[in-house]
Amino acid sequence: MISAAKLGFSRRNLPIIATMTVFVVLYMIGGMTFRGFLTNRVFFNLLTDNAVLGITAVGMTFVIFTGGIDLSVASVVSTTAMIVAVMTQAGVPNLFVIICAILFGTLLGLVMGFIIHYFDAPAFIVTLSGQFFARGFGYILSLDSVPIQYDFYQKASSFGIRIGNGKLTLPAIILLVVIALGIFISKKTKLGRNIYALGGNEQSALLMGLPVGKTKIIVYTMSGFCASLAGFVYTFYTLSGYGLAAIGLEMDAIASAVIGGTLMTGGYGTIFGTLIGTLIQGVIKTIISFHGELSAYWIKIFVGGMLLSFILLQRVFVAGSGKRD
């Protein structure tokens, strides 16, 4: 009986174990193929280089937990960076700039959440219009790349804690904090559990007396917040705002969640999985850049193949879990 329970437990964890295995295997392949791959530097760069994606993906994962989707995140990232650039250029005090930048995505998420809940509108369409709106708004601010020349961003860009030959940068720190917060919310708070409940079965959640509408709105707001935060972090790399930045990032974020074991239909998945999903994409990028001869487009092909195999794995996993009396 005990062993059956234990088996059941590990079966439930199968997707995340598979994801971890793939990550370790890829990392080992990199390590065996290239010199200097198995160093702190490469590992911390992995965190730094994928912070924007990872932060965005945390918000996205919560949305997918509820069975929804948020297509607006990439354009929110780019437009947030643009807002920072334009406002800084105009000489607005930095604290105010940060507040405006973060509020932009958060409010957009809030509005989209309201519309999705009160008009019972499909999230796909509502967030697609959000994407167009945010992208368009970025172009209105400026068609060109706007440089950010302000001390804070220069410093933020070069800040880091040395660990061996690696550097734990500010983006990496923010990523880890967001992941930790995400795990905390998903496991330790009522909100987190309501999010899973909503994704499990909205009608049941409603009949069980859970605050379905409120939860939905909060989830899109959280995703907007994460996207804006990611946009803010984005400025540390580029030190500029550009309207065409981060195109297609929303799809990468979805890929992070799915590779990390989150079910698109909602109700199942983990935030930790999303971190690993993000890092797997990062490792593929790193391997390809170490290789030097493969073009960057191979990244997409590998990530695509990975995504497909994980979806297939999930199918097998779902089919393999029988009912017990």
């Binding site: 009522k190 559990r193 309501n194 899973y196 409940a197 994704g199 499990g200 079965n201 049941s204 959640a205 069980m208 007396g209 859970l210 109700g267 199942y268």
Partner: peptide, 13 residues
């Protein structure tokens, strides 16, 4: 909610 544990189904909310 089939996606949550038995205990959680009893307690959620």
């Amino acid at each position: 909610l089939n996606n949550l544990s038995v205990a959680e189904n009893l307690a959620i909310g």
